[in-house]
């Protein structure tokens, strides 16, 4: 057991994967000597050399497109895109190829690869560095998308992603890279992709979220208990695709009320999908409309105003109270 932050935990997973599976290669811009702009690839070049830790030309489509070729050829590429705000350059390769090879070749040609995209706001970053666009990938059949929310699950999910036979978008909440530490066990752990976790139990309302927003949700849940005496259940999705419908609806069946939280824009966001599934499965258990606390349908404002855009505990608490008093 060692205590570490999420940045270190992801680094640890990469190190372990490179060590145990010789097919694994790490590639991207500045992942070598610079050890990644967020230092996620720290120590990897020194240990594994430039054959396996590959600094690429500055071209996202090139990174993802060649990763697809490598994966087809039997390697296990783990591609890093510096900021999720740049993955659109590679979108065509992801949508048209990474996600489709298995299907269009009826399983003959497969693309086991991981795409690490650091996403989200809250770090006073440059313009184009704070987006949350998981919906694009969730809307692309054939991909899986996982979003860790802390050091331990980050490391376990990355191992699962690397071992997965299909392409996985590993959406990294960069706001919490160094926000807190957790005990991470020495032995390698995995987490089943497609499984959510109930991280806080309660009976009166269900809060559903993932990634960096989970911290705000947990804070709101504490406030709700302290100030209003209401015990909220909190579900951490962990996987956006496949989505763990069962865990969501089991919780809402119990509580009858739910609030879904993410920092991505609201329109056609993941929350909309969660609400739809709740409607489909446990409609008759609802005591109130399911609320969404999300980013607004504007580009995430530059950092002078990003706080007002990102869901925080107060906004979540407010939505909870409205839902509870419906």
């Amino acid at each position: 057991m060692a205590e570490m932050n999420m940045a270190k935990a992801i680094n640890k997973a990469l190190y372990e994967a490179l060590e145990r599976d010789e097919r694994v290669v790490v590639l991207g811009e500045d992942v070598g000597a610079d050890e990644g702009v967020f230092r996620i690839t720290e120590g990897l070049l020194a240990k594994f050399g430039d054959k396996r830790v590959i600094d690429t030309p500055l071209a996202e489509s090139g990174i993802i497109g060649t990763s697809i070729g490598m994966a087809i050829y039997g390697l296990r590429p783990v591609a890093e895109i510096q900021f999720a705000g740049f993955d659109y350059y590679a979108f065509h390769q992801i949508e048209s190829h990474a996600s489709r090879f298995r299907n269009r070749t009826r399983g003959r040609v497969t693309v086991p690869m991981v795409m690490r995209f650091p996403y989200g706001g809250g770090i006073r970053a440059l313009e184009h560095h704070s987006e949350s666009r998981e919906t694009y990938y969730a809307h692309t059949p054939g991909l899986k998308i996982v979003v860790p929310s802390g050091p331990r699950n980050a490391r376990a999910l990355l191992h699962s992603a690397i071992q997965d036979p299909d392409p996985v978008v590993y959406y990294e909440p960069k706001a919490i890279y160094r926000a807190f530490k957790e005990e991470v066990p020495d032995t390698i752990e995995t987490l089943p992709i497609g499984r959510a976790q109930v991280v806080r139990e309660g009976r009166e309302i269900t809060l559903i979220s993932y990634g960096a927003s989970l911290r705000q949700v947990l804070e709101a849940a504490e406030m709700l208990e302290e100030e209003d005496g209401v015990k909220a259940e909190v579900v951490d999705l962990l996987s956006i695709v496949p989505m763990d419908t069962k865990t969501i609806v089991d919780s809402v069946r119990k509580t009858g009320r739910a609030v879904v939280v993410h920092e991505a824009p609201r329109n056609c966001g993941i929350a909309a999908e969660v609400v739809a599934r709740i409607n489909e499965h446990v409609f008759l258990y609802l005591e109130a409309p399911v609320a969404r606390v999300t980013g607004y349908d504007v580009p995430i404002p530059y950092f002078s105003k990003e706080k007002a855009y990102l869901p925080d505990a107060d906004r979540i608490l407010d939505a909870c109270r409205q839902t509870l008093s419906f």
């Binding site: 009976r203 009166e204 005496g229 209401v230 608490l317 407010d318 109270r321 409205q322 008093s325």
Partner: peptide, 14 residues
């Protein structure tokens, strides 16, 4: 049934 203290509560406005 779980107590529903909030049933008549005004929505908490900012």
């Amino acid at each position: 049934e779980a107590p529903r203290r909030f049933a008549e509560r005004e929505p908490a406005e900012p």
